Amino acid sequence: MLIACFIVFFFVFTHPIVRYFKALTDGLQSIASGDLSYRLPLSRHDELGIVAHNINQMAERLQIQQERERQLEKSKMELITYVSHDLRTPLTSIIGYLDLLKTHTYQSVAEQERYIDNAFNKTQQLKKLIDDLFEYTRLTDGHIQLAIQQVDMNSLLDQMITEFEPVAKEHGITVRTNLLSAPVMLDLDIEKIVRAIDNLLMNAMKFSDRPGTIQVSLDAGAASVTLSIENNGIPISPEQEEQLFERFYKIEPSRNDNQMPSGSGLGLSIAKHIVELHGGRIGLEHRNGHYRFFMDLMISAADRIPSHSDRSDLQ
Protein backbone atom coordinates (compact mmCIF):
# COMPACT_ATOMS: atom_id res chain seq x y z
CA MET A 1 0.00 0.00 0.00
CA LEU A 2 2.79 2.43 0.90
CA ILE A 3 4.60 1.60 -2.33
CA ALA A 4 1.45 2.24 -4.34
CA CYS A 5 0.92 5.61 -2.61
CA PHE A 6 4.56 6.53 -3.21
CA ILE A 7 4.25 5.71 -6.91
CA VAL A 8 1.04 7.77 -7.21
CA PHE A 9 2.46 10.78 -5.41
CA PHE A 10 5.75 10.50 -7.33
CA PHE A 11 3.84 10.50 -10.61
CA VAL A 12 1.67 13.46 -9.53
CA PHE A 13 4.64 15.59 -8.51
CA THR A 14 7.02 14.67 -11.34
CA HIS A 15 4.55 14.65 -14.24
CA PRO A 16 4.53 18.50 -14.63
CA ILE A 17 8.33 18.52 -14.54
CA VAL A 18 8.55 15.78 -17.15
CA ARG A 19 5.95 17.53 -19.31
CA TYR A 20 7.82 20.85 -19.04
CA PHE A 21 11.11 19.11 -19.77
CA LYS A 22 9.54 17.64 -22.92
CA ALA A 23 8.37 21.14 -23.89
CA LEU A 24 11.98 22.34 -23.50
CA THR A 25 13.35 19.56 -25.71
CA ASP A 26 10.64 20.14 -28.36
CA GLY A 27 11.35 23.87 -28.30
CA LEU A 28 15.08 23.33 -28.65
CA GLN A 29 14.41 21.05 -31.60
CA SER A 30 12.29 23.77 -33.27
CA ILE A 31 14.98 26.40 -32.69
CA ALA A 32 17.72 24.07 -33.91
CA SER A 33 15.64 23.43 -37.06
CA GLY A 34 15.74 27.16 -37.87
CA ASP A 35 12.58 28.54 -36.26
CA LEU A 36 14.30 31.32 -34.32
CA SER A 37 10.96 33.03 -33.61
CA TYR A 38 9.90 30.12 -31.37
CA ARG A 39 9.81 30.93 -27.65
CA LEU A 40 9.56 28.48 -24.78
CA PRO A 41 6.74 28.90 -22.22
CA LEU A 42 7.94 30.53 -18.99
CA SER A 43 5.44 28.90 -16.66
CA ARG A 44 7.93 27.81 -14.01
CA HIS A 45 10.12 29.81 -11.63
CA ASP A 46 12.64 27.12 -10.71
CA GLU A 47 15.86 26.02 -12.40
CA LEU A 48 13.96 24.74 -15.45
CA GLY A 49 12.30 28.13 -15.80
CA ILE A 50 15.74 29.79 -15.74
CA VAL A 51 16.92 27.37 -18.44
CA ALA A 52 13.87 28.22 -20.59
CA HIS A 53 14.50 31.95 -20.11
CA ASN A 54 18.14 31.56 -21.16
CA ILE A 55 17.12 29.54 -24.22
CA ASN A 56 14.65 32.26 -25.22
CA GLN A 57 17.37 34.91 -24.88
CA MET A 58 19.71 32.83 -27.00
CA ALA A 59 17.04 32.43 -29.69
CA GLU A 60 16.32 36.16 -29.63
CA ARG A 61 20.00 37.05 -30.05
CA LEU A 62 20.34 34.56 -32.91
CA GLN A 63 17.21 35.99 -34.55
CA ILE A 64 18.56 39.56 -34.28
CA GLN A 65 21.90 38.44 -35.72
CA GLN A 66 20.15 36.63 -38.56
CA GLU A 67 18.04 39.72 -39.34
CA ARG A 68 21.15 41.90 -39.35
CA GLU A 69 22.82 39.54 -41.82
CA ARG A 70 19.73 39.65 -44.04
CA GLN A 71 19.65 43.44 -43.91
CA LEU A 72 23.37 43.59 -44.70
CA GLU A 73 22.92 41.33 -47.71
CA LYS A 74 19.91 43.37 -48.83
CA SER A 75 21.92 46.59 -48.42
CA LYS A 76 24.75 45.17 -50.52
CA MET A 77 22.36 44.24 -53.31
CA GLU A 78 20.67 47.66 -53.17
CA LEU A 79 24.08 49.34 -53.25
CA ILE A 80 25.08 47.38 -56.36
CA THR A 81 21.74 48.14 -58.04
CA TYR A 82 21.74 51.87 -57.33
CA VAL A 83 25.42 52.33 -58.15
CA SER A 84 25.10 50.41 -61.42
CA HIS A 85 22.16 52.59 -62.48
CA ASP A 86 23.69 55.90 -61.41
CA LEU A 87 27.06 55.19 -63.00
CA ARG A 88 25.59 53.83 -66.23
CA THR A 89 23.56 56.99 -66.98
CA PRO A 90 26.44 59.53 -67.32
CA LEU A 91 28.72 56.84 -68.79
CA THR A 92 26.20 56.15 -71.57
CA SER A 93 26.05 59.88 -72.36
CA ILE A 94 29.85 60.14 -72.44
CA ILE A 95 30.10 57.19 -74.84
CA GLY A 96 27.41 58.75 -77.03
CA TYR A 97 29.15 62.13 -77.29
CA LEU A 98 32.54 60.52 -77.91
CA ASP A 99 31.03 58.38 -80.66
CA LEU A 100 29.61 61.52 -82.33
CA LEU A 101 33.02 63.16 -82.14
CA LYS A 102 34.85 60.06 -83.35
CA THR A 103 32.61 59.71 -86.42
CA HIS A 104 32.65 63.50 -87.03
CA THR A 105 28.86 63.64 -86.74
CA TYR A 106 28.60 67.36 -86.21
CA GLN A 107 27.72 70.25 -88.49
CA SER A 108 30.02 72.96 -87.19
CA VAL A 109 32.89 73.74 -84.85
CA ALA A 110 30.37 75.20 -82.40
CA GLU A 111 28.47 71.91 -82.33
CA GLN A 112 31.73 70.01 -81.84
CA GLU A 113 32.61 72.25 -78.89
CA ARG A 114 29.15 71.65 -77.42
CA TYR A 115 29.63 67.88 -77.61
CA ILE A 116 33.04 68.20 -75.93
CA ASP A 117 31.60 70.42 -73.17
CA ASN A 118 28.70 68.01 -72.57
CA ALA A 119 31.04 65.02 -72.42
CA PHE A 120 33.30 66.86 -69.98
CA ASN A 121 30.32 67.80 -67.75
CA LYS A 122 29.21 64.17 -67.69
CA THR A 123 32.71 63.05 -66.66
CA GLN A 124 32.57 65.54 -63.78
CA GLN A 125 29.19 64.15 -62.75
CA LEU A 126 30.59 60.62 -62.95
CA LYS A 127 33.58 61.62 -60.79
CA LYS A 128 31.23 63.19 -58.21
CA LEU A 129 29.17 59.97 -58.05
CA ILE A 130 32.30 57.86 -57.56
CA ASP A 131 33.69 60.25 -54.90
CA ASP A 132 30.38 60.19 -52.99
CA LEU A 133 30.21 56.42 -53.14
CA PHE A 134 33.79 56.06 -51.93
CA GLU A 135 33.18 58.51 -49.07
CA TYR A 136 29.96 56.76 -48.06
CA THR A 137 31.56 53.31 -47.95
CA ARG A 138 34.48 54.68 -45.91
CA LEU A 139 32.14 56.29 -43.37
CA THR A 140 29.97 53.18 -42.95
CA ASP A 141 32.62 50.45 -42.74
CA GLY A 142 32.89 50.87 -38.96
CA HIS A 143 36.67 51.41 -38.90
CA ILE A 144 36.93 55.10 -39.75
CA GLN A 145 39.46 57.12 -37.75
CA LEU A 146 38.87 60.84 -37.24
CA ALA A 147 41.84 63.24 -37.41
CA ILE A 148 40.66 65.43 -34.53
CA GLN A 149 42.07 68.90 -33.89
CA GLN A 150 40.79 72.12 -32.38
CA VAL A 151 39.06 74.35 -34.91
CA ASP A 152 37.48 77.78 -34.69
CA MET A 153 34.06 77.01 -36.14
CA ASN A 154 33.33 80.69 -36.68
CA SER A 155 36.46 81.20 -38.79
CA LEU A 156 35.94 77.94 -40.69
CA LEU A 157 32.39 78.91 -41.66
CA ASP A 158 33.47 82.41 -42.71
CA GLN A 159 36.09 80.91 -45.05
CA MET A 160 33.68 78.34 -46.51
CA ILE A 161 30.99 80.93 -47.19
CA THR A 162 33.50 83.23 -48.90
CA GLU A 163 34.29 80.37 -51.30
CA PHE A 164 30.63 79.38 -51.69
CA GLU A 165 29.16 82.83 -52.44
CA PRO A 166 30.44 83.18 -56.05
CA VAL A 167 28.99 79.75 -56.93
CA ALA A 168 25.67 80.62 -55.32
CA LYS A 169 25.55 83.96 -57.12
CA GLU A 170 25.86 82.21 -60.49
CA HIS A 171 22.64 80.36 -59.64
CA GLY A 172 20.75 83.44 -58.50
CA ILE A 173 21.24 82.75 -54.78
CA THR A 174 22.19 85.36 -52.16
CA VAL A 175 23.98 84.11 -49.04
CA ARG A 176 23.34 85.84 -45.71
CA THR A 177 25.18 84.97 -42.51
CA ASN A 178 24.64 85.44 -38.80
CA LEU A 179 27.80 84.23 -37.13
CA LEU A 180 29.46 84.92 -33.76
CA SER A 181 32.01 87.65 -33.10
CA ALA A 182 34.19 85.53 -30.80
CA PRO A 183 36.01 82.27 -31.63
CA VAL A 184 34.12 79.02 -30.99
CA MET A 185 36.59 76.15 -30.52
CA LEU A 186 35.45 72.64 -31.44
CA ASP A 187 37.28 69.31 -31.61
CA LEU A 188 36.71 68.28 -35.24
CA ASP A 189 38.08 66.40 -38.20
CA ILE A 190 38.31 69.47 -40.47
CA GLU A 191 38.25 67.62 -43.80
CA LYS A 192 35.15 65.63 -42.92
CA ILE A 193 33.20 68.42 -41.22
CA VAL A 194 33.90 70.67 -44.24
CA ARG A 195 32.46 67.91 -46.44
CA ALA A 196 29.32 67.74 -44.28
CA ILE A 197 28.77 71.52 -44.30
CA ASP A 198 29.46 71.73 -48.04
CA ASN A 199 26.88 69.02 -48.68
CA LEU A 200 24.28 71.01 -46.73
CA LEU A 201 25.13 74.22 -48.59
CA MET A 202 24.97 72.53 -51.99
CA ASN A 203 21.68 70.88 -51.06
CA ALA A 204 20.22 74.27 -50.05
CA MET A 205 21.40 75.83 -53.32
CA LYS A 206 20.03 72.99 -55.42
CA PHE A 207 16.54 73.16 -53.92
CA SER A 208 16.18 76.93 -53.36
CA ASP A 209 13.75 79.21 -55.14
CA ARG A 210 15.51 81.40 -57.71
CA PRO A 211 16.20 84.15 -57.14
CA GLY A 212 16.46 83.16 -53.51
CA THR A 213 18.37 83.43 -50.26
CA ILE A 214 20.33 80.99 -48.12
CA GLN A 215 20.68 81.99 -44.46
CA VAL A 216 23.65 80.54 -42.55
CA SER A 217 23.58 81.01 -38.76
CA LEU A 218 25.77 79.90 -35.89
CA ASP A 219 24.47 79.88 -32.32
CA ALA A 220 26.27 78.85 -29.12
CA GLY A 221 24.73 77.21 -26.09
CA ALA A 222 26.25 76.07 -22.81
CA ALA A 223 27.86 72.92 -24.23
CA SER A 224 27.21 72.91 -27.96
CA VAL A 225 26.93 75.06 -31.06
CA THR A 226 24.21 74.86 -33.68
CA LEU A 227 24.82 75.55 -37.34
CA SER A 228 21.62 76.36 -39.24
CA ILE A 229 21.26 76.54 -43.04
CA GLU A 230 17.88 77.85 -44.20
CA ASN A 231 16.28 78.30 -47.61
CA ASN A 232 12.87 78.45 -49.28
CA GLY A 233 11.79 75.97 -51.96
CA ILE A 234 9.04 73.66 -53.08
CA PRO A 235 7.28 71.98 -50.09
CA ILE A 236 7.72 68.24 -49.58
CA SER A 237 5.55 65.68 -47.80
CA PRO A 238 6.22 64.32 -44.28
CA GLU A 239 7.06 60.96 -45.91
CA GLN A 240 9.73 62.65 -48.03
CA GLU A 241 11.11 64.42 -44.96
CA GLU A 242 11.63 61.09 -43.19
CA GLN A 243 13.66 59.73 -46.12
CA LEU A 244 15.87 62.74 -46.84
CA PHE A 245 18.86 61.41 -44.88
CA GLU A 246 18.56 57.89 -46.30
CA ARG A 247 21.15 56.82 -48.84
CA PHE A 248 20.30 57.13 -52.54
CA TYR A 249 17.10 59.06 -51.78
CA LYS A 250 16.64 61.83 -54.34
CA ILE A 251 14.22 64.69 -54.93
CA GLU A 252 14.34 66.53 -58.22
CA PRO A 253 15.74 70.11 -58.02
CA SER A 254 13.19 72.90 -57.73
CA ARG A 255 13.95 74.08 -61.25
CA ASN A 256 15.42 72.47 -64.32
CA ASP A 257 19.04 73.51 -64.49
CA ASN A 258 21.62 71.91 -66.77
CA GLN A 259 24.36 73.16 -64.46
CA MET A 260 22.74 71.44 -61.45
CA PRO A 261 22.39 67.75 -62.44
CA SER A 262 20.81 65.12 -60.26
CA GLY A 263 23.24 64.02 -57.56
CA SER A 264 24.06 60.64 -56.12
CA GLY A 265 21.48 60.75 -53.34
CA LEU A 266 24.31 60.29 -50.84
CA GLY A 267 25.09 63.91 -49.86
CA LEU A 268 22.78 64.21 -46.85
CA SER A 269 23.48 60.63 -45.75
CA ILE A 270 27.23 61.37 -45.81
CA ALA A 271 26.67 64.56 -43.78
CA LYS A 272 24.61 62.61 -41.23
CA HIS A 273 27.32 59.97 -40.79
CA ILE A 274 30.04 62.60 -40.38
CA VAL A 275 28.11 64.57 -37.75
CA GLU A 276 27.21 61.40 -35.81
CA LEU A 277 30.87 60.27 -35.89
CA HIS A 278 31.62 63.55 -34.09
CA GLY A 279 28.99 62.76 -31.45
CA GLY A 280 26.68 65.43 -32.86
CA ARG A 281 23.17 65.58 -34.26
CA ILE A 282 21.78 66.62 -37.63
CA GLY A 283 18.19 67.19 -38.65
CA LEU A 284 15.61 69.11 -40.64
CA GLU A 285 12.76 71.45 -39.73
CA HIS A 286 10.39 72.05 -42.64
CA ARG A 287 7.21 74.07 -42.91
CA ASN A 288 5.43 75.12 -46.10
CA GLY A 289 8.59 75.13 -48.20
CA HIS A 290 10.85 76.77 -45.60
CA TYR A 291 13.76 74.45 -44.84
CA ARG A 292 16.07 74.64 -41.86
CA PHE A 293 18.84 72.02 -41.76
CA PHE A 294 20.68 72.11 -38.45
CA MET A 295 23.88 70.57 -37.11
CA ASP A 296 24.61 70.37 -33.36
CA LEU A 297 28.27 69.93 -32.35
CA MET A 298 29.88 69.81 -28.91
CA ILE A 299 32.05 72.73 -27.76
CA SER A 300 35.56 71.89 -26.58
CA ALA A 301 35.79 71.79 -22.79
CA ALA A 302 37.21 74.84 -20.97
CA ASP A 303 36.56 77.16 -23.91
CA ARG A 304 34.65 80.38 -23.43
CA ILE A 305 31.00 80.30 -24.48
CA PRO A 306 29.98 83.52 -26.27
CA SER A 307 26.68 84.95 -25.12
CA HIS A 308 23.84 85.66 -27.51
CA SER A 309 24.66 89.36 -27.30
CA ASP A 310 28.09 88.66 -28.84
CA ARG A 311 26.50 87.86 -32.21
CA SER A 312 27.33 89.96 -35.22
CA ASP A 313 25.63 90.00 -38.61
CA LEU A 314 28.31 89.40 -41.22
CA GLN A 315 26.89 90.02 -44.66
Rank of each mutant, 00 (worst) to 15 (best):
L48R: 00
L28R: 01
N203W: 02
Q150V: 06
H15N: 02
I234W: 08
N118F: 00
K74V: 09
R304Y: 10
G27Q: 09
R281S: 01
A223F: 15
I214T: 05
Q107V: 14
T81A: 13
P41N: 06
H286E: 11
P261R: 07
Q149A: 13
N154E: 15
T105Y: 07
I3H: 13
L40C: 01
I229A: 04
Q159T: 13
I214D: 01
P183Y: 08
A119E: 05
S33G: 11
R255P: 05
P253W: 04
H278G: 04
G267D: 04
I50R: 14
D131Y: 01
S217C: 08
I7H: 08
V216P: 02
F294G: 03
L91A: 10
G283W: 01
T89L: 10
G283D: 03
G172P: 13
I173T: 10
H45Y: 15
P16F: 00
K128H: 09
L91K: 01
L36S: 10
P211M: 04
I31M: 14
K192S: 02
P253Y: 00
D303A: 09
G283E: 10
K22V: 12
Q315G: 15
F11Y: 03
K122W: 08
D117M: 14
N121G: 01
G279K: 03
Q259W: 12
A222T: 07
L91P: 00
N231P: 09
E241H: 07
T177E: 12
E47S: 15
G27A: 11
S312W: 13
D141H: 12
F248C: 01
E165L: 08
F207H: 13
G263Y: 06
N288Y: 12
